Amino acid sequence: MGYPISTAVPALKPARFTTRRQPGWVASREDVIAALEKPEVLILDCLTPERYRGEAGNPRSGHIPGAINVPYLANIDPALSTLTTAELEPWLDAADAFTLAPRATLSELYRQAGVTADREVITYCGRGYAGACGLLALKCVGHEHVRLYDGSWLEWSADPRLPVEKNCD
């Protein structure tokens, strides 16, 4: 396009990043339990499909009842949503960086999953990392009512009193 190119590494100025806690972005276990009785709240499992179905993971595997599955890597490329954990490993090892899919792609991904502006969404995964990716993607497309259950499956599955679903698509 006629622009100059260079192989020189630019000098970057140090900067300070200051975090700001967003209390409204976090859901507790009690919030998720309450959401089980609220059809206006959508619980979003961000793990791979086989973990969602309960085919892989810890001895008490599956998902939170009523949760839908949008794997975290679908936020990068929806085509990755069907890959198993084993299929993803080589892809993750080879990747240098990740970029969220374009806004229109993410909007369509979540529209197809049943996410609408009038519904609150609570994301979760195994330990909170992949659920945070789902929260970020939803915030990037302008979804206002989204929180992360950061206790995630690690906390939920450890309590035998809490319900679990398996083998749902």
Rank of each mutant, 00 (worst) to 15 (best):
R29L: 15
E30T: 12
E30C: 00
A34N: 12
A35R: 05
A35K: 09
L36V: 08
E37M: 08
P39A: 07
E40N: 14
L42I: 15
L42E: 02
I43E: 01
I43A: 01
I43T: 02
D45K: 04
L47D: 03
P49D: 12
P49N: 14
P49W: 13
E50R: 05
E50G: 06
E50Q: 13
Y52P: 00
R53H: 03
G54A: 10
A56Y: 15
A56M: 14
G57T: 13
P59H: 13
P59G: 10
R60I: 14
G62S: 06
G62A: 07
H63G: 07
P65D: 07
P65S: 08
P65G: 06
G66H: 10
G66S: 09
A67Y: 07
A67C: 09
I68S: 04
I68H: 04
N69D: 11
N69E: 08
V70R: 05
P71W: 11
Y72E: 08
Y72L: 15
I76A: 12
I76C: 03
I76S: 10
D77A: 12
A79S: 13
A79K: 09
S81D: 00
S81I: 00
S81K: 14
T82D: 05
T82V: 13
L83A: 12
L83M: 13
T84W: 03
T85D: 08
A86N: 11
L88T: 11
E89S: 04
W91A: 00
W91D: 00
A94R: 14
A95P: 00
A97P: 00
A97L: 07
A97I: 01
F98S: 02
F98C: 00
T99S: 02
L100C: 00
L100M: 15
A101I: 11
R103A: 12
R103Y: 01
A104F: 03
A104M: 07
T105A: 01
L106D: 03
S107D: 07
S107T: 14
Q112R: 15
Q112F: 03
Q112P: 00
A113Y: 03
G114R: 13
G114N: 08
V115G: 03
A117E: 15
E120H: 12
V121Q: 04
I122T: 11
I122N: 03
T123D: 03
T123Q: 04
T123C: 14
T123A: 11
C125W: 04
G126M: 10
R127M: 13
G128V: 13
G128E: 07
Y129C: 02
A130W: 15
G131E: 04
G131A: 14
G134C: 08
L135I: 09
L136P: 02
L136C: 10
A137Y: 04
A137T: 12
L138M: 15
V141R: 09
V141K: 04
G142H: 11
G142N: 05
G142W: 10
G142F: 09
G142P: 09
E144K: 14
H145F: 01
H145D: 10
V146L: 07
V146Y: 03
R147V: 11
R147L: 11
L148M: 11
D150C: 02
D150K: 10
D150M: 05
D150I: 13
G151Y: 07
G151K: 12
S152Q: 12
L154P: 00
L154N: 02
L154W: 01
E155N: 08
W156F: 03
S157Y: 04
S157H: 08
D159N: 12
D159P: 00
D159G: 02
P160C: 02
L162Y: 02
L162I: 08
L162E: 05
P163Y: 05
P163E: 06
P163F: 09
